[in-house]
Structure formats: structure tokens, C-alpha cells
Simulated scan of single mutants.
Amino acid sequence: MTTPWGEPELSRFPEDPRDRLRAWDAADEYLLRHLAGRRPAPDGTVVVVGDRWGALVTALAAHRPTQITDSWLGQEATRANLARNGVEPGAVRLLTTQDAPPERIDVLLVRVPKSLALLEDQLLRLAPSVHADTVVVGTGMVKEIHTSTLKLFERILGPTRTSLAEKKARLIFCTPDPSLVRPPNPWPYRYTLPEDVGAVSGRTVVNHAGVFCADRLDIGTRFFLRHLPGARGGGRVVDLGCGNGVVGTAAALADPKAEVLFVDESFQAVASAQDTYRANDVSGHAEFRVGDGLAGVPAGSVDLVLNNPPFHSHQATTDATAWRMFTGARRTLRPGGELWVVGNRHLAHHVKLRRLFGNSEVVASDPKFVILRAVRR
């Protein structure tokens, strides 16, 4: 990536030589050019929110910034990119969206997330640390910045305007108003599940901001919950890509002897899964892990994997995440162990499962979704 401070070498995480997607885009470059041309140059405590693969904090490492991210993969990419470019350990402070932000912020740089709810939650959490002289600049591709995005900045921080577009990217400029009366933070959000979704019917779901379908039960998960496998008298179950944890909680309620592992790469998602599990007073053993799918889970240690894989990475459509999830499931399942997958019919997950497992069976289907079962032979 070419920046006013040099040309750092950057990669996504995990590295894949077949992946043609870059670890930065025009929005990152636009923000860095703006900061380099600003006089006086931004100084003080620099906080970067939503830096997707560490491009911004790697370029700004000399300013000893703090990065705040919801993505475990993004945080690992940042560590790797900082090391790759010779940045001394400790030069960049790495925080998650669940951590307390710095008490004072002099420069706030915001990479606009896909989720408006996550932006709302983060701005409300950061607002007490912002003062009248804080430099606030957001960035994103034109298709990511909407009127609702600007209204959030204005409602929570202060007067807001945008730049002209360059290479389909745009900047957001916000002038903090300390006298602004901010609304209370509505996150995390709770709701009661309907009565037709199996073991979790009428139960409570807790969603932190940014989790998929945080304000309602999505139709794919609803379909999955109605067809989950019944009690098996124990065993180790994984809710892979757990989101708010409703699937793993349903498995735990249906089979109290089961040990359930909730895994997601989103810190917000795992916090949601923990809160959902606890809100329903589930008996049994549960473990909650933020990480890259089933990496680190011992081979042949799992009896059942339940999975609703994503098919997007930020704005890019890709099946790379699903492939890693399915491959990880095959490695960690015991012989006879099963992977259950729900997905849109057009994604053709059965083709991938047959290549990996040698088998794939349709458990249930409707015009939009299909639930597949693959057995580790």
C-alpha cells in the first residue's frame, strides 16, 4: 500500500496465496492522504476504530495509536502486519469492542462498519472520551456511507459533513460538541423468541451491536432451530460461527449432558452468546471462544458441529470462510461425528461437503433454505 509515510506490505489473515483481496482499499488510502496533508498534523492520543486488517494503524504506527476492533481475524492480521513491517512490539495498543476505550481521545479515526448498530454502539461508548478539540474523521467507500451514517455522527458527537468522493471513497468530518445531550445506549438488545422454534421457544436472546440480525430472529436460523438433532445423551457439540448463541443454547437445552463450545471470530458475537446462555439458566457445561473457527480444537474431539456459515467478508462475497469452517469440522469430528449446515439453497454447500466428507444428506429444505448433514467416516 502506498502511503505518505512509506509503502507497508500488508496481508489479510489467515494468509492465502490464492486470495486476490487486498488488505486495504481506497477508503484507507484517502484517509491517510488527508491526515498527511492536514496542518497542524494530528497529535495526542490517536484511536482507530474498525481498522479491518491493520492497514491504518500500521501506517500510523509512529503515532502509537490504539486500535479498536470487533474482529479477531482483523486483530491477528494487525499483529502480523505490524511485525512484517518492523514495528516495535507495544507501539500499537490493540483493544476489542468489548474493552473500555481510552479515557481521552485527541484523534478519532473511524472506518465505517457494515453494521449501523455497531457504529452507534461504538460512538456512544467513545463519546465521553472525546473533547471539543478532538479531530474526528471517518472513512468508507461511497456505498458504505449513507444519510443514516452521517446522522449518527451528528446525533452522538456533533456537526458532520462529508468530503467529495475519490476513487469511490469518501471521508466524514465531525466537529465534537461537548454540550450535546446523547441518547442512552440501546445495546445490548434483548428479545423473546417465538413459540415455534424448538428447545428455545419463548426463551430470551441477548444481542450486542453488530451481531447478525441483532433485533430479530433471522429466517435461516429459525428454520435451523426447528430441525436440530435431538438429545444424544451427552457428547461435545460446537456452535460454529455462533453469533448470538441461540443455536448452541438450543442444543444445550435439548441435551443437558452435552458440552457445548461456542466459537466466533467476532468479540461482539461471543459476548452475545455468553449472555444468551446465561439469560436462560442453562444447566450443563459451556465454553466460549473467540478465534478462527475450529483452529486450536483438538482433532477427533467433537461429536456434533452446528453451522450457519457466512458468505461475505466485509463487502466481498466469498466462500472462503465456509470452506475453512467445513475443513475444520472434518478435522475435529470423531469418526461417526456429524456436521449439520444450514444455508441458502443457491450456495450449493452440498458440493463442498461431498468433496470433503464423501457424503451429504438433506435433512430438511424449503424454497429458500436447506439443512445438510455430513458424517465423518
Rank of each mutant, 00 (worst) to 15 (best):
F288T: 13
V246P: 08
E259R: 15
R278T: 08
L261T: 15
E265W: 02
T276W: 00
V290P: 02
A252T: 01
V290D: 00
L304D: 02
P256V: 13
P298F: 06
D264Y: 07
K257P: 01
V246M: 12
Q268S: 15
G245I: 07
A254L: 11
D303P: 07
G296Y: 14
A299M: 12
F288C: 07
L240R: 05
G293V: 08
D292M: 05
Q268P: 03
G245D: 10
A295W: 04
V247K: 09
Y277D: 00
A295Q: 15
A271W: 08
H285A: 13
P256F: 07
D281Y: 00
T249R: 06
G284I: 11
F267E: 11
S283W: 00
C242Q: 05
E259P: 00
D292Y: 14
A250Q: 10
L304S: 01
A254G: 15
A273Q: 07
G243S: 11
S301A: 15
A252V: 06
D255P: 11
D255A: 04
L294P: 01
G291W: 06
F262G: 02
V290M: 07
E259I: 04
Q274T: 10
F262K: 03
A286T: 08
S266Q: 05
N244P: 01
L253K: 04
G296M: 11
A269K: 12
F288D: 06
N280R: 11
L253F: 08
V302A: 09
A271I: 11
V246S: 11
N244T: 02
V282K: 00
V282E: 00
K257C: 10
N244G: 02
V247M: 10
A279Y: 12
L240A: 05
V263K: 01
P298W: 05
R278A: 15
A269D: 14
F288A: 09
A269Q: 14
R289L: 13
G291T: 04
N244D: 09
E265M: 08
V260I: 13
A279C: 10
G241P: 11
G296P: 12
A271R: 14
S272A: 15
A252K: 09
G243Q: 06
G284S: 12
E287D: 13
P256R: 12
V263W: 01
Y277W: 13
T276M: 03
S301M: 10
G291C: 10
Q268M: 14
D281L: 10
G284R: 10
T276V: 04
V270H: 01
E265D: 15
F262C: 02
V297S: 11
Y277L: 00
G300T: 04
L261C: 07
C242S: 14
A273P: 06
L253D: 03
C242I: 01
L261G: 03
L240T: 03
P256D: 12
A251W: 02
V297Q: 09
L261N: 02
C242D: 10
D264W: 04
D255R: 03
D303F: 09
T249K: 00
H285C: 01
E287R: 15
A271M: 07
G296V: 11
G300L: 05
T249P: 01
A251C: 04
G291L: 07
R289I: 08
L240D: 11
D292L: 13
C242N: 06
F267I: 11
